[in-house]
Nucleic acid binder design. Structure first.
Lengths: 274, 274
DNA sequence: CTTAAAATATCAAATCATATCATATAGCGA
DNA sequence: TCGCTATATGATATGATTTGATATTTTAAG
């Protein structure tokens, strides 16, 4: 037998392995580290690290000797998509940290359907603030529902295929009749001081959300800048603040400063505490 | 054979064992330490420690020699995901199989917020039927959203704390304005030919759902029979069918037959792994 | 009051967790 | 192409949990 005591990237990608762990847990609700290690052909150390990773992000609950699935199937995130989402994760996490600082207890908050906003929701959940939350994203709603201090309201509507976003009736009318302190909005692209989206329906929804908020905050990682989509949401000046990450080119920052737009840069340095 | 006087983590995770204890207590209301130790294959010491753990968190009440379930079992909110789930899984699965047979392609279906109904949704997803689904359960919605052939609509409303159920505005009004072919309804208890719930708000919601459906089907495992909750939903005769499992006593079956109610018994072929 | 069963406290052994290190691979730049 | 760095993996040592057993105290029943 060939000895291979130390190795890296033996057969599958780490993200794939983590997805397999989630899959397995979803089916059998719980698994021990020994079982997982045997099933995946990885060492207990690696499995343990994977479980830590998944626990940090709230997908599973760790127990002595193994892990359990986190209540509702929040785990339904396609492995491939989760790999893709991995690239901008550090940026999203940094933006989420800043966004969470914009809230204080007792406020009402609107969470748009967007992966960055969802990341912010995850951070906010950990703060245990007393909040009233409104969202049109069922994944976000499920996340918020696990926090006792947050009173969550779902707008309702049809699920946009391939996403967890709610559109149309009855949520659209509902949004027209409410007022919140803060709204966290995700956008598809930002360019030339204009926010844009790929679909008219989504753009209309976001427009209403911005209108319902006393203070609208757009969360957009640096890669969102520069492109252009079909449907216009509103001008960057119509929102109170844009939070992005530190990979945004200096030139773009100056451009938005010149427009008098509040642009906050989140530092992505504090990624791993080692 | 080989003696193993001292051991740790012999076959299942501690958290799983505690969940099993809780489930057993929910079924038979009380259990002795000796019984539990024999059933779980653990020592009395371990069982005693588990009972202490569950008592500290308020799940059960300790007595000399055993433990009792703490008050109303199903209404309790579990902050810990580890304890939840896994209860009566075989029964729910069997009921879900029958429920799925009630649908045909192109129909509109209402999924109530209930673990049994959610199980039915899981089975239905696998069928790849072309359906329009409406639900007031965000966990169910997330599940349905992963199936391309199902067009899902969420009612909207406030999340009932500790659950994934949506109540109140705007979903309640929305339900008043729609009509569906089939509604799968979960109930808290069935007794004397009456469905009951623990909360007025939930009962009102279910009443509307039943009203919106051309054919309402109640999914209730056998343990739901016999108890009685505060709020009345409707008479068993007001729905088209009740689907339950084969652990329902013969006497109860005859009782409902005599009332002229369609009671379908799902066979639970597989048993729970203890 | 007596007695058997249960609770409590404690201990030894096994397993698990954590931190650290050595190695292998991938990616990157010169 | 070559070397460098970052990341991932497995191994290992050390401390923490868990578990079953046992001795002792407490409880409940007759």
């Amino acid at each position: 037998m060939t000895e291979r005591p130390y190795s890296a990237r033996v057969d599958i990608l780490p993200a794939q392995r983590r997805a397999l762990i989630l899959e397995r847990l979803r089916i059998q609700n719980a698994a021990s580290i020994q079982d997982l290690a045997a099933a995946l052909g990885a060492s207990p150390s690696t499995v343990r690290r994977d479980l830590d990773y998944l626990t940090e992000r709230g997908y599973i609950e760790r127990t002595h000797g193994g892990a359990l699935i986190q209540s509702a199937p929040m785990t339904r995130f396609e492995p491939e998509a989760s790999i893709a989402a991995e690239t901008a994760r550090a940026q999203k996490s940094a933006i989420a940290q800043i966004a969470a600082q914009r809230l204080s207890r007792g406020q009402s908050v609107l969470f748009d359907a967007s992966s960055t906003v969802r990341e912010a929701a995850r951070v906010i959940c950990a703060l245990n603030l007393s909040l009233t939350a409104v969202t049109n994203d069922i994944a976000c709603a499920l996340l918020l529902s696990n926090t006792a201090s947050i009173h969550t309201i779902v707008t309702g509507g049809a699920i946009r295929p391939g996403s967890t976003t709610l559109l149309g009736s009855p949520g659209q009318d509902f949004l027209g009749g409410i007022h919140v302190d803060v709204a966290f909005i995700g956008v598809h692209t930002v360019s030339g001081g204009i926010f844009t989206e790929t679909s008219l329906e989504v753009a209309a929804m976001k427009k209403r959300m911005i209108g319902a908020a006393r203070k609208a905050i757009v969360l957009a990682d640096s890669r969102k800048f520069g492109g252009q989509s079909f449907c216009e949401i509103c001008a960057a000046g119509d929102v109170a603040e844009i939070i992005t990450d530190d990979e945004l080119p200096e030139s773009v920052r100056r451009e938005y400063d010149a427009m008098g737009i509040t642009l906050t840069i989140a530092a992505t340095s504090e990624e791993s505490p080692v």
